[in-house]
């Protein structure tokens, strides 16, 4: 089966005065139609830059320096900007972390949605408006016919994000890249949005890449989860298995620091140290300075270890061993 989106060896670097920031540093990811892939990782691990790379939205001093991004077999690295613009917002939709990346503060929601529809389809303003109202209702905006007249600042943060999601889903895209889309939403509305996402994936066969640091949501939603650290995927596998038995020490640390499990009021466990600077990373495993089980071997590049079909980890001493053959 060929993948809808196939990223191989992607390297996106920022050439800054201080040096080269290796934001994405050898990313491999394949997403099939109808599949939901979750990407988790701490901020600065390259999740957003990876999504921006797919859409050709990396601004200088950032540049894709190596690798390939194929969408339906078509190479997007180095593709004509006009071609990328046509793909964006229609076949590939992006939901940004910050809804104001999608929304303009000075225009009414109505104006923005009608424009978004008419940019890709020939429909009357009236029909576009009706579609927009319907889309708002689907993401749970109450009284959409009245609220569509509002400006973004008159909406709560969560409502703005719902509008951005409604805009992304307007054209039934084949691939949706969602970057921390529901962080600002309550569980009810999040549930409604996730329902819409699952429905879209089931009905249209769209592929969904869901970037989030909320492991519970990723587990509930994704077929597969990829854990990113310092610009690469360090663990990959079926979401339930990774959450139940993480193989990478970083994934283990993430799960251990979640509130709710520990006794209320007790101090939470923290991963020691800080997110590494992606500027001139030392060779070897980038997690080594924070890893509780690091050894001298970790100064060399860790191998990708296959644990089970579809499950792999990039570590010298995985916490889960290869299944006996």
């Amino acid at each position: 089966m060929s993948a809808l989106l196939e990223i191989t060896g992607l390297e996106t670097h920022f050439h800054t005065r201080a040096g080269v920031v290796r934001a994405v540093d050898g990313l491999d990811l394949a997403v099939r139609a109808g599949e939901i892939v979750g990407i988790v990782g701490e901020s600065g691990s390259g999740k957003s830059v990876a999504s921006f790379s797919v859409l050709g939205l990396v601004d200088p001093p950032g540049r894709i320096v190596a690798g390939s991004i194929r969408f339906r077999g078509e190479e997007l690295v180095g593709a004509d900007p006009a071609r990328l613009r046509r793909l964006r917002g229609r076949e590939i939709a992006m939901i940004f972390q910050d809804p104001l990346m999608t929304l303009t503060p000075v225009l009414r929601i109505e104006t923005q949605m009608v424009e978004a529809i008419r940019a890709h389809e020939r429909v009357s303003a009236k029909a576009a408006r009706a579609r927009a109202i319907e889309a708002l209702a689907r993401v749970g905006i109450p009284a959409p016919a009245e609220r569509i007249r509002a400006y973004p600042h008159q909406f709560s943060g969560g409502m703005r994000q719902r509008v951005a999601i409604a805009i992304a889903l307007l054209h039934s895209p084949a691939l949706i890249l969602a970057d921390e889309p529901t962080t600002a939403l309550d569980v009810t509305i999040q549930g409604q949005i996730l329902y819409e996402m699952q429905r879209l994936v089931a009905e249209t066969g769209a592929a969904l890449v869901w970037v989030s640091h909320d492991l519970a949501v990723v587990e509930s939603l994704a077929d597969r989860v990829c854990v990113m650290y310092a610009g690469r995927i360090v663990e990959e596998g079926p979401a339930e298995e990774v959450v139940a038995a993480p193989a990478h020490p970083y994934t283990r640390g993430l799960l251990d620091s979640l509130p709710g499990g520990a006794l209320a009021g007790a101090r939470l466990r923290q991963i020691p140290g800080m997110t590494p600077s992606l500027l001139d990373l030392p060779p070897g495993c980038p997690f080594a300075p924070r890893c509780p089980i690091a050894t001298a071997a970790c100064a060399s590049e860790p191998p990708i270890v296959a644990i089970a079909p579809g499950r792999s980890v990039r570590c010298h001493a995985p916490l889960v061993r290869q299944e006996a053959a």
Partner: peptide, 23 residues
């Protein structure tokens, strides 16, 4: 409705009933 780690995959349901407006 709150998802929790360790609960596995889940099929989300649409909201039932109408979300009322503060207007």
């Amino acid at each position: 409705e709150a998802p929790r780690v360790g609960q596995g995959r889940r099929v989300y349901a649409p909201l039932t009933g109408e979300i009322p407006s503060p207007l």
